[in-house]
Amino acid sequence: MRKVLIIEDNLEVRENTVEILELKGFSVISAENGKEGIAKAEIEKPDIILCDIIMPDIDGYRVIKELKAHPITAKIPFIYVTASGEKSEVKLAMNMGANAYVRKPFDVNELIEKINECFA
């Protein structure tokens, strides 16, 4: 069973995403902020990380920067799931090493497709 780490500061979005992914057969870990997400990624070593961009304290850009800098987490596929959708933000996210970018509110099938593409 693939392990997914969700880093999302919005409780409702986080809980809904956890539930959706568990129903699709994933093992899911969640973090409510970037700091907690970085720590959990290093400890849990998930198969993939889903992360919001706009979060207090440590935003999604800093999360990916820190995770890509550590050998333990550098190769973990990373998908941004965020309400931000400006072309410049998508380009920046991809240049920082994200594997995909999914806009909220997301279509469940699109999210699962992007996750599966990371494992192909």
Score class of each variant (00 low, 15 high):
Met1Tyr: 05
Lys3Ala: 08
Val4Ala: 10
Val4Cys: 02
Leu5Asp: 00
Leu5Phe: 00
Leu5Cys: 09
Leu5Ile: 03
Leu5Ser: 02
Leu5Glu: 04
Ile6Lys: 00
Glu8Phe: 13
Glu8Asp: 10
Asp9Ala: 11
Leu11Phe: 13
Leu11Gln: 15
Glu12Ser: 11
Glu12Trp: 08
Val13Trp: 02
Arg14Met: 01
Asn16Cys: 04
Asn16His: 09
Thr17Glu: 06
Glu19Ala: 03
Glu19Thr: 05
Glu22Arg: 08
Glu22Leu: 07
Leu23Glu: 13
Leu23Tyr: 11
Lys24Thr: 03
Ser27Thr: 06
Ser27Ile: 01
Val28Gly: 01
Asn33Thr: 07
Lys35Tyr: 10
Glu36Val: 12
Gly37Thr: 01
Gly37His: 02
Ala39Thr: 04
Lys40Gln: 13
Ile43Gly: 15
Ile43Val: 13
Ile43Ala: 08
Glu44Pro: 02
Glu44Cys: 05
Leu50Trp: 01
Asp52Leu: 03
Asp52Ser: 10
Ile53Asn: 05
Ile53Thr: 06
Ile54Asn: 11
Ile58Arg: 03
Asp59Ser: 09
Asp59Ile: 07
Tyr61Ala: 01
Arg62Asp: 12
Val63Met: 00
Lys65Pro: 02
Lys65Cys: 06
Lys65Thr: 01
Pro71Phe: 13
Thr73Cys: 07
Thr73His: 03
Ala74Tyr: 13
Ala74Ile: 03
Lys75Thr: 14
Phe78Ile: 05
Ile79Asn: 01
Val81Cys: 01
Val81His: 01
Thr82His: 08
Ala83Gly: 10
Ala83Asp: 05
Ser84Glu: 00
Ser84Val: 05
Ser84Thr: 03
Ser88Gln: 08
Val90Arg: 02
Val90Gln: 09
Val90Trp: 05
Asn95Ala: 03
Asn95Met: 01
Met96Val: 02
Ala98His: 09
Ala98Ser: 14
Ala98Arg: 02
Asn99Met: 08
Asn99Ser: 14
Tyr101Leu: 02
Val102Phe: 06
Lys104Ser: 14
Phe106Glu: 06
Asp107Cys: 14
Val108Asn: 15
Leu111Pro: 09
Leu111Lys: 11
Ile112Cys: 07
Lys114Cys: 04
Ile115Met: 10
Ile115Trp: 12
Asn116Lys: 13
Cys118Asn: 14
Cys118Glu: 05
Cys118Gly: 12
Phe119Met: 11
